[in-house]
């Protein structure tokens, strides 16, 4: 996949010739691209790349914050997570549960909504605004709002359920349903992202393709299946990858609603990392969880990219 350059034009060719002619000022500025890159690279290397390796190192030590000596302990922290940590495997299970509900629902629903929002209907600007509004609301505010709405005693939702003659629900108190509620709230909060990406993809599909399909007698379903979906493969890949990465990163939407409970039903890896590191100050195991998340995300991202690339020749 090459990125097309901005195209040839005569003046540029002229300038290129001037460059080749060995303009003195240019020769002296060989260092300039590196100078331009310097500020970015410093921050990038020190605060994004280096911490990954530092995290790996911390995960191999017995890192006591109060002790200046940090003895190297090999894989002991990982051993602790796998065989000693009371909650690690629960967190893995719960994270997978979150991903397997969150990702497919949000991808399918995002596409469906994008198809609806791509129609020309009265008041569309308003409806789009309504859809996008929750997306800019602070996750902490979202968490508070839904704690209020879902409160089993005084919440709005149970009131309207009782109006319909239904029994009041325990909502976030019942571990059976908490994860589903978290996913529902997450959809409310962030589905707009997927819709926007799909909408952009839809608008880039040339109308002629639909015309051609129509002439061939394809019905709406066939047109969707044979034109829309294949044309959206780029957006689809992007959304799926982003959703997977995002689901591993998910913290605020879960922590602010449930704090990881009840009965650890929503204690995903990220929440577990936070508690291990910053509630209980077990930095070694916390760094080890970080390393594990990093490896899984990298592997999954590469797998998804490879899968899509195999399926559609890029």
């Amino acid at each position: 996949m090459t990125i097309p350059d901005s195209g040839e034009n005569p003046r540029m060719a002229l300038a290129a010739a001037a460059r080749k002619g060995g303009m003195a000022w240019f020769a002296g500025k060989k260092a300039s691209p590196y100078l331009f890159l310097l500020p970015f690279m410093i921050i990038y290397v020190v605060l994004i790349l280096y911490p990954i390796f530092q995290g790996l190192y911390v995960s191999l030590t017995d890192w006591d914050m109060m002790n200046p000596v940090k003895p190297f302990v090999g894989l002991k922290n990982f051993e602790y997570l796998f065989f000693g940590d009371p909650l690690f495997w629960n967190s893995v299970k719960v994270t997978l549960q979150y991903i397997f509900t969150n990702v497919p629902i949000k991808v399918v629903l995002g596409l469906a909504l994008a198809l609806i929002f791509n129609q020309k209907l009265p008041g569309m600007a308003f409806h789009r605004g309504a859809l996008f509004l929750p997306f800019v609301i602070n996750i902490a505010a979202v968490g508070i709002l839904f704690q209020w709405i879902l409160d089993p005693e005084v919440g709005l939702l149970n009131y309207y359920l009782s109006m319909l003659g239904l029994p009041p629900q325990k909502w976030l108190v019942d571990p059976t349903w908490t994860m589903d509620l978290v996913v529902l709230v997450t959809i409310w909060w962030s589905i707009a992202f997927n819709v926007i990406v799909f909408l952009a993809g839809l608008q880039d599909i040339p109308e002629e393709l639909y015309e051609a399909a129509r002439i061939d007698g394809a019905n709406a379903w066939h047109r969707f299946w044979n034109v829309t979906l294949p044309c959206l493969r780029g957006s689809m890949m992007f959304v799926v990858v982003m959703q997977i990465i995002g689901s591993f990163q998910a913290f605020g939407n879960i922590y602010m609603l449930t704090g990881g409970g009840p009965n650890n039903a929503t204690n995903v890896l990220m929440v577990h990392l936070y508690k291990t590191g910053f509630f209980y100050f077990q930095m070694g195991p916390a760094a080890a969880i970080g390393v594990i998340i990093f490896i899984i995300v990298m592997a999954l991202t590469i797998a998804v990219l490879a899968m899509f690339r195999k399926q559609v020749e890029y």
Binding site: P86, L87, D174, P175, T176, G261, P262, N263
Partner: peptide
């Protein structure tokens, strides 16, 4: 507390909840 929650939600019995809690406490 998290295991008591499991018992109150009917997901496990008192015995199950406490033996899980015991195991976790001993690990800590």
């Amino acid at each position: 507390w998290s295991n008591l929650q499991g018992a109150f939600a009917g997901k496990m019995t008192a015995e199950e909840a406490l033996s899980l809690a015991e195991e976790q406490t001993n690990r800590i």
